[in-house]
Every structure is written in structure tokens, then in C-alpha cells.
């Protein structure tokens, strides 16, 4: 395959990754890694490098919009970034010593669980209770709605912090934003409103990925020829996705479609990992 053909294929795939990633909130890594390894037969280290680059592009683009609207909880994001950056560094170091087929199997399992998490309906109860740690760390805040700002409290800070550490290790190992895990930590454990969790997760993903990307850049995992179409494709895809989302009333059908696609890809990934094809 010539360089120009490969570039065009990655450009189209990355556009779809950015589009679906921004619509579903799962991040582009879920498309980029299978596209590179399963379809284009590119070494998984290059795939992880390119995927990290795509995560940073989507995160910075999407976060800019959310921060502007005042939905993002910047203090919460900063505090939890201690856990995600430390975890990501550990994951990036582990990725060098763990054989790639184990990474592939683990990635498949994470894909399926993320897909299931994304389609499970969450009932939203905004709590006003502020735990001792949450109060000391000033994690409570408010977010804008159509009916004016809504105040919210935060609970189980230690549990959320632990889950973030795990999310960081996973993102460092696999080059995914692990946005689903971050949202689960904030929404499920710390009881933060879903909208704030999603926005803050988007805000954090870029920093976690950047910490890993610096390590990967030095190892040669981030190849300019492969990263270039990924950056361009993902960004324009994400821009299109955010426009569609603004004009749409429900993204439920998108979530279900994506969950199905992700599950099929995940099963392939586990299958190839078990057969040592990767």
C-alpha cells in the first residue's frame, strides 16, 4: 500500500472516530486501535501512539466548549488529575514490559464493559451533602441549566480517587482516554451530576493522555506519518459530531449503535489476542 492510500484510509477512519467519539463520549481510541491493528495490520505500539494523539485532539477541542459554558468543574478536574497522571505514567511504563497480546485481550474486555456502561440508563439524583474531604477540597460547585444554576455536593472522594488511579493505568496501557471509567468514577461513586461528569472527564482526558504521550514520543511510538491523518481527521470529525449533537434531541440511538459496534470489535480483539495474532 502506498503512503497516500494509507493516509486517505486513516483520514476517513479518524473522521468517523472523531464523529462517533464526540457523539457518544467514548473517545476516538476505540475506533483508531482496531482500525490500525485489525484492518491495516499496523504494529500495536504505533496504534497506541496514534490513539493517544487522537484522544488529546478530541479532549482539547471538546473541553474548550464545555469550559466556556461553565459546566466543567475545574477544581474537581485538577484534584483527580493527580490520580490519572500518576496512573497513566505507571501504565505507560508497564506497556513496555507486558506482551502486546495481553494488552489486546485486556483492551477487548475494557471495550465490552465500557459499551455496557454507556447504554445502562442512569437515574440522576443531585445531592447537596458535602463530605468532609469534599468540603476541605472545595469540590462542590454549580452548573448552568435552562432553569438557572444548580448547586451540587460531592461524596466518597477517596473511592472516586481510587477509581481514577485505575482509569489512569488503563489509559496509559492502552492509549485510550478511558472516558467511560472516568465518568463512572465521578457520576457513580462521587455522585456528581452526569453533565458535569462528562464535561470534566473530557477536560481531564487530555492531560492524562499528554503524560503518556510524552513517554511514547520518546519511545518512537508516535509516528508523524501515521499521526498526521489521525489529528486532522479526528478534529474535523469531532467538530461535525458536536454540531450534530447540538441539533439532536436524543443521542440514545447513537449510544446503542456504538455499543454494538464496539462489542463486535472487542470480541475480534480478544480472539486475535488469544491466538497471538497481534
Amino acid at each position: 500500500m502506498s503512503v497516500i492510500e494509507l493516509t486517505i484510509i486513516i483520514l476517513i477512519g479518524s473522521y468517523l472516530a472523531g464523529l462517533l467519539g464526540s457523539l457518544t463520549g467514548l473517545g476516538g481510541g476505540f475506533i483508531i486501535i482496531p482500525l490500525f491493528t485489525l484492518i491495516l495490520h499496523i504494529d500495536i505500539h504505533y496504534a497506541i501512539g496514534a490513539s493517544l494523539v487522537s484522544v488529546i485532539a478530541t479532549s482539547s477541542g471538546a473541553a474548550a466548549a464545555y469550559v466556556k459554558e461553565g459546566i466543567t468543574n475545574m477544581r474537581l478536574g485538577m484534584f483527580l488529575e493527580i490520580a490519572t497522571t500518576a496512573g497513566a505514567m505507571l501504565g505507560a511504563i508497564l506497556a513496555i514490559y507486558i506482551p502486546t497480546h495481553y494488552i489486546a485481550i485486556l483492551f477487548g474486555v475494557i471495550l465490552i464493559s465500557s459499551a455496557l456502561m454507556s447504554i445502562v440508563k442512569k437515574s440522576e439524583v443531585i445531592i447537596q451533602h458535602k463530605s468532609y474531604l469534599a468540603a476541605r477540597l472545595k469540590l462542590y460547585s454549580n452548573y448552568p441549566t435552562a432553569n438557572g444554576p444548580v448547586e451540587y455536593g460531592v461524596t466518597n472522594v477517596a473511592g472516586g480517587f481510587g477509581m481514577m488511579l485505575f482509569a489512569g493505568v488503563i489509559s496509559g496501557l492502552l492509549g485510550i482516554g478511558s472516558g467511560a471509567l472516568k465518568v463512572v468514577a465521578m457520576d457513580g461513586i462521587m455522585r456528581i451530576p452526569f453533565k458535569v461528569s462528562t464535561a470534566t472527564s473530557n477536560f481531564m482526558i487530555g492531560v492524562t493522555a499528554a503524560a503518556s504521550a510524552v513517554v511514547y514520543l520518546q519511545r518512537g511510538y508516535i509516528d508523524p506519518g501515521l499521526s498526521m491523518p489521525v489529528v486532522i481527521g479526528v478534529l474535523f470529525g469531532a467538530l461535525t459530531g458536536s454540531k450534530i449533537l447540538v441539533g439532536s434531541n436524543s443521542s440514545n440511538w447513537m449510544r446503542v449503535t456504538f455499543a454494538v459496534i464496539v462489542s463486535i470489535v472487542a470480541i475480534q480483539m480478544i480472539y486475535n489476542g488469544i491466538l497471538h495474532k497481534i
Binding site: 503512503v3 493516509t7 505500539h45
Partner: peptide, 11 residues
């Protein structure tokens, strides 16, 4: 380099 052969199969 558009018409070069791309080889990313091995690291």
C-alpha cells in the same frame, strides 16, 4: 513520499 510503500507492520 506519497507514492512510497508504507510499512508499519513491524515496530
Amino acid at each position: 513520499h506519497g507514492h512510497d510503500v508504507a510499512n508499519y507492520h513491524d515496530f
